[in-house]
Design a protein around this nucleic acid. Structure first.
Lengths: 124, 124
DNA sequence: TGAATATATGAGCAAGTGTTCATATAATAT
DNA sequence: ATATTATATGAACACTTGCTCATATATTCA
């Protein structure tokens, strides 16, 4: 690869634009952090959990019924969302109620959804 | 699972909230479509490509230099972004210039980035 | 034409992901 | 205490993903 880069730099590269791009480029750590946030939203099950919780809190059992998925599958995904602080929960006896925790995520979700609906309309 | 759901429906489930949640729930197809969009943004390399392209178009070679990655790796990711219509390209001889294509994606990216930066500040 | 170069792509592989299954934990009820 | 029930979690497995390596394609240049 070093050879390729060297050849590239000496011949066709647009020096100014590369320098400019470097200044807007996010660093690897920020990219990883950002990727993690979008990763939370990159699975259909998690998105459906978020959409189900978008109005009211729900217990795990309710959620699994609404989604038509096993309690275990839902619980695993809730753990992931919990670890990223995207949902909060409260316990009432043995029942655990989950709710959305992060307004930023709701915004990302809403904006993505608007885009999707727009796209789906275009295709129809 | 059927048994669990049945038990659930007869005993502890909050019927009204389940019905309400069902009305806000996105269907599986929409969820998959939306997940696909967020998936495009869920990888550090692709996010860095998007950030590098956020001001100006760049050719593949420039991009690989800016990112410090192999031409092949960059090319593979560009194909993915291309297939989702997130980037557009123009050919000039054998050089191919890529640019962001979708304002919605730029918005999602910017919003996610703002959130990340906010979060990173909180941690510091 | 043939060599060089910019980009694209298929195969393969290591690492990651989402589910199921079995089981653990914790709270309630008998 | 023991049984029941709501939730959590570890292991395993199939599937996906992002890279490298080798090679193909396409354009330019000599």
């Amino acid at each position: 690869m070093a050879k390729l880069l060297a050849a590239c730099e000496e011949t066709i590269i647009h020096q100014d634009e590369v320098v400019a791009a470097r200044s807007t480029l996010i660093d690897r750590q920020t990219a990883m952090h950002l990727a993690q946030i979008f990763s939370a939203l990159s699975d259909p099950t998690r998105l459906r959990i978020i959409s189900a919780l978008s109005e009211h809190e729900l217990c795990v059992c309710d959620l699994s019924v609404v989604l038509g998925m096993s309690q275990s599958a839902v619980s695993h995904q809730l753990r992931l969302l919990r670890n990223l602080n995207l949902v909060k929960y409260r316990k009432e006896g043995r029942i655990v109620y989950y709710a959305l925790d992060d307004e930023h995520i709701r915004e990302l979700y809403d904006r993505g959804l608007a885009h999707t609906i727009h796209q789906e309309r275009m295709e129809a």
